[in-house]
Structures are given as C-alpha cells and as structure tokens.
Measured scan of single mutants.
Amino acid sequence: MPGGGPEMDDYMETLKDEEDALWENVECNRHMLSRYINPAKLTPYLRQCKVIDEQDEDEVLNAPMLPSKINRAGRLLDILHTKGQRGYVVFLESLEFYYPELYKLVTGKEPTRRFSTIVVEEGHEGLTHFLMNEVIKLQQQMKAKDLQRCELLARLRQLEDEKKQMTLTRVELLTFQERYYKMKEERDSYNDELVKVKDDNYNLAMRYAQLSEEKNMAVMRSRDLQLEIDQLKHRLNKMEEECKLERNQSLKLKNDIENRPKKEQVLELERENEMLKTKNQELQSIIQAGKRSLPDSDKAILDILEHDRKEALEDRQELVNRIYNLQEEARQAEELRDKYLEEKEDLELKCSTLGKDCEMYKHRMNTVMLQLEEVERERDQAFHSRDEAQTQYSQCLIEKDKYRKQIRELEEKNDEMRIEMVRREACIVNLESKLRRLSKDSNNLDQSLPRNLPVTIISQDFGDASPRTNGQEADDSSTSEESPEDSKYFLPYHPPQRRMNLKGIQLQRAKS
C-alpha cells in the first residue's frame, strides 16, 4: 500500500489531465453553448442521470443573480465542470439528445442517441419513463405552439383585415386629398384670375382717368384759346370803332377846312374895312368942321342928330352885343352839340362793343353748352356701355358659378359613389376574411389534438420509441430542437415537474 501511493497520485493526475482536456473543448465553445442552450431543457435529463440535484437545479433556474438565459447556462456549465468526467459525459449526452448541432460542434462527431448513462443509472424502465415524459412534454409544447400558431394566424388575419381596411381608408383619404388639391388648384386659379381682372380693371381705370385728364386739359386749352380769340375780336371791334371815330373827325375837319373863306376874300374885306374906317374919319372931320361953321339952329339939329346917332349907336351896340352873345351862345351850343355828338359816338361805340361782347359771350355760352351736351352725351354713352359690360360680366359670372356648381355637385356625387364603392369593397373584403377565418377555424378544430390522450396510444408510441432511437435521429431532433426563430415568436414553456403513473402502461404491456 505505501508503495502504491505514487502510482495512485500519477493516476489521479492523469485523470485530472484527461478531464481538463475534455472540458477544454467545452470551454472553447462556451460562448456558443451559453448563447443557445436552454438550461430548463437540460436539467431534467441531468437530474435523471443524478449529475445534479434539486438544489443545483433551483440555483440554475431560479437564482435572482442569474437574470438572463446566458448567465444560467454559464452557471450550469460551471456546476457540471465540478462534476468531473461524469458531468462531461452526461452533458454531451444531453447535447446529443437536445442540441445535435452543438454536440457536433463540441465533439466533431455525429449524434447517435445511445443514452448509456441513464440506462446504467435507471435501467430501461427509467429510460422509458424519461422518454415518455419527454414525449408528453413535446406534445404539450407542440399543442402550445399550435395554439400560439393559431392565435398568430388569427392575429395575422386580423392584421391583414386591418391592413385592407387601412388601405381602403388610405384610398378614401387619397380621394379626399386629391379632391382637396383640386379644389385648392381651382381656388388658386380663381385667385389668379381675380387678381388679373383687378389689374385689368385698375389699368382701365388709370387709362380712363388719364384720358379724362387729357380731355379736361384739352377742353381747358380750347376754352383759353376761345377766350383769347374773343379778346382779340373785342380788341378788333374796339379798334374798328376808334378808326371809324377818327375817320368821322377827319371828315369834319376836312369839311371845315373846305368851308373856310379864301385869302383873297379876307384881304378884300380888310380893304373894305380900311376904306370904311377912312371914310368914317373923313366924315367925322367934316362934321367937326361943320359944327364950327354952322348956326345955332343947325347946331341944335346936329345935337339932336348926334344924340339920335348916339342912341342909334347905343342901340346898335346893344344889338351887336346881343348878336355877339347870341353868337357866343350859338358857339357854345355848337360846342355842346359837338361834345354831345362825340359822347353819342362814344356811347354808340361802347354800345356796339357791348353788343359784340354780348354776342361773343352768347356764342361762347352756346359753345360751352354744346360742349357740355357733348360731354353729357359721352358720359351717358359711357355709363350705358359700362352698365352693359357689367350686366354681361355679371351674367357670365352667374353662368360660370352655375356651371361650377354643377361640376362641383357632379364631382361630389362621383366622390360619394367612389367612397360608397370603396366601403362596399371593404365590406366584401371583411365578409370574405370572416368566411375564410371561419373555414380555417373549423379546419383547425378538426385537426387539433385532444387534450387527454388514451393510455393505449401512449403505450403504442413508446413501443415504437426504441427503433426510432436507432434510425431516425433527424426526426427526433426536428421535433425536440428549438430554433432561434421559434424563440422569437413563441413563449418558452415550462412543464410541471411531476412523475407519471406507469401502472397503466405496465398492465397494457403485460396484456400485449
């Protein structure tokens, strides 16, 4: 015994090295194993092979420090690593049964499904019991997946119906949107047309105001020219009257000059006056001389005659003075006559000038009245044309509004008919989907599995289990394997941990 101590140590070291070499393959693929292994699927088989106990299973599945599946799978690998070579062998058998691809990844061999460990530990009855539990578990999982698949199909059909409904609603909204954009385009076109009409109206108003201003300026210029013409006519008439007055005065002077006595007659009258003065002096001298030589009687007679002569001279002087006064009065009367005649001529000139001015103003008033009548006639014609244009424009607008209203009513009726057609199509689609759903539900009910399987069917299934373990590994792997896509769409199922009653199965096998 003492001599065998070193050999035992060498043997233990060799086993430990082999164990480390075995687990080295697992550690190399630890990331892939932790990512894809579900500990809840492996722990029943590991407990059946007595590699882990209930406490280890509870620690792996329910520990609060292991929230994710990767953490739980890593903890399970750590626990199996502590179990040595047996933990490695049982772990590979569980991978061979549940995850053939991972088994091939770790060992590089094809899975054979021999279950040597569980046969050694529990015997064939334990293997049968384990396989029966796994089959029931798989059936329950398949039923749950079928239910989930039916629910998802129903949800899918519902979503398809909602999608069709949303599509129809979208078509309806597109119809309304198209109608909205069309009405918006019509409104924009009408606004552009309105702005264009306003611009045209403004341009016409500006043109009309400009023409009116030009016409008023032309009328004012015409009036100024007419006033200048009238003033020139007035000056012409005044000059004609002055010329006529000057002509009359010149004719009067000419007549006075023609009626003036001649120079010879004046000289002859002056000679006669001198001769008479000479004779008068001679007679006076004779009379003076006679007075001195005459007697007293003759002197008395001469005195009487002288007195008579003096009286006659006085009378004559009075007559001469009277004649002079009369001549002066006649001259003054002639001057007054000439003055009055001049005033008369001036008044006649003024009267004729005023008459011509009156005629001029009368003509001017007639011209202004004619212009006013023409302006009123043009204004009435413009008003009439404007009223006709406004009436025609309003009539066109009324007809346009009428046609637009008819078009809008027809478009609304068309839209309502399209919407009604879309709604009826939606109703038809809904009815078809309901009919299809009812038909599929009836087919699913016919094809669904019963909840409680008979014992004979279970025994028959387990009677055929042994050949399947040898020759149909691919079928078992397809039913027991969970793909990543299934984990996305289906909830994980945790079967209840219970042991099955095998009395009925044993009785059935005894009868057979």
Rank of each mutant, 00 (worst) to 15 (best):
V119F: 15
S116W: 06
M142P: 05
R114I: 14
P111H: 04
E19Y: 13
E96G: 11
R47K: 08
T82D: 08
H81Q: 11
E96V: 06
Q55R: 09
N25L: 02
V135P: 01
K143Q: 12
V89T: 04
D9L: 12
Q141W: 14
V135A: 02
G4Q: 10
E125I: 07
M8E: 13
Q55K: 08
L127N: 14
T128S: 05
D10T: 10
Q139G: 14
N62K: 05
K109T: 08
Y103R: 00
I52R: 08
F91Y: 06
L127G: 12
P44K: 07
V135T: 07
I79W: 07
D20S: 08
Q48E: 12
L66T: 02
K41N: 11
I118Q: 14
V90Y: 15
E57N: 02
E59Q: 01
L127Q: 08
L77P: 02
E24L: 00
V119D: 15
K50H: 11
P44H: 06
N25M: 07
D53A: 10
Q140C: 10
G5E: 10
G123R: 15
N71F: 04
G126T: 15
R47V: 07
L77A: 01
T82M: 12
S34L: 06
E122Y: 04
R72T: 05
G84M: 01
H31A: 10
Q48G: 10
W23S: 02
Q141S: 14
L76S: 01
A144M: 09
N62E: 12
M32P: 04
S34W: 02
L95A: 04
E125N: 07
K109N: 00
M8N: 11
Y45T: 08
F130V: 15
Q85P: 11
V51I: 12
L92Q: 05
E57Y: 01
P64H: 12
I79M: 09
E57Q: 04
G87I: 02
D78Y: 01
K41F: 05
N29K: 06
D9Q: 15
A144I: 13
R86F: 00
E27I: 05
P6G: 12
H81K: 06
E19V: 14
I70L: 06
D58S: 13
T82A: 08
L127C: 11
R75A: 06
N71S: 13
W23Q: 02
K41M: 07
V120A: 05
V89G: 13
T82I: 06
K16R: 09
I118P: 15
K104S: 00
A73L: 02
E54L: 08
Q48D: 10
K145D: 07
R35I: 06
I79A: 02
R47A: 08
K69R: 15
G126K: 11
I118C: 15
L22E: 14
F91K: 01
R30W: 03
E7G: 12
E59A: 00
P64V: 13
T43W: 04
K143S: 11
E93C: 00
L102K: 12
N71D: 04
T112P: 10
D17T: 14
K137A: 14
R72E: 01
A144Y: 11
R75T: 00
G108T: 01
E122C: 05
S34M: 01
E24F: 07
A21H: 03
D53F: 03
Y36T: 10
I79H: 01
E54R: 12
S94Q: 00
K104M: 10
L138H: 06
K69C: 03
V89M: 13
M12R: 07
L131I: 01
P6T: 14
T43M: 08
F130M: 15
K104T: 01
L95V: 00
Q139H: 14
H129D: 11
W23V: 00
R75M: 03
G87L: 01
L102E: 14
Q85F: 07
I70M: 14
V26C: 00
Q85M: 08
E59P: 01
T14H: 15
Q140R: 11
R86P: 01
G123S: 15
D10H: 12
C49H: 15
K50Q: 11
V51C: 09
L33I: 07
T14E: 07
V90G: 13
E13D: 12
T112Q: 07
L80Q: 04
I79Q: 12
M8R: 12
S34N: 01
L46R: 08
N38H: 06
E19L: 13
Q85W: 06
Q55A: 11
D58A: 12
I70H: 07
S94F: 03
T107N: 02
P39R: 01
A144Q: 09
E7F: 06
V51H: 11
K145F: 12
V120G: 05
R35A: 05
E121H: 07
I79L: 05
Y98T: 15
H124D: 14
E110Y: 07
R35F: 03
E19I: 15
L127M: 15
N62D: 06
E19A: 12
A63E: 01
T14A: 10
D146E: 12
G108V: 06
M8A: 12
L77G: 05
D78W: 03
L138Q: 14
E54T: 11
H129M: 07
C49A: 13
L138Y: 00
S116H: 06
C28R: 08
E7W: 11
A144R: 09
A40Y: 06
L22H: 10
G123F: 15
P44D: 02
K50P: 09
G5R: 13
Q48F: 08
D17M: 07
Q85Y: 14
Q140T: 08
V106L: 03
D56P: 09
Y36D: 02
S34E: 01
R72S: 02
G5V: 12
D78P: 02
E54H: 10
D78H: 01
M32Q: 08
E54G: 09
D17S: 13
Y11I: 11
A63I: 00
D9K: 10
T43F: 05
K143L: 06
P44W: 01
P111C: 04
C28Y: 04
K69T: 05
V135G: 10
Y11Q: 11
K16H: 15
G5F: 08
V26R: 04
R30M: 00
D20A: 09
E19K: 12
K83L: 02
L42Q: 08
I37Y: 03
D20G: 09
M132F: 15
L131G: 01
Y98R: 04
Q48H: 08
N71H: 08
F91C: 01
K41S: 08
E122F: 05
Q139A: 15
Y98I: 13
R47L: 07
F115L: 14
V89S: 09
I118G: 00
K50G: 13
G126Y: 14
L66K: 05
D58H: 02
I37K: 02
C49Q: 15
G123Q: 15
G5I: 11
L131Q: 05
E125G: 13
C49Y: 15
M12G: 11
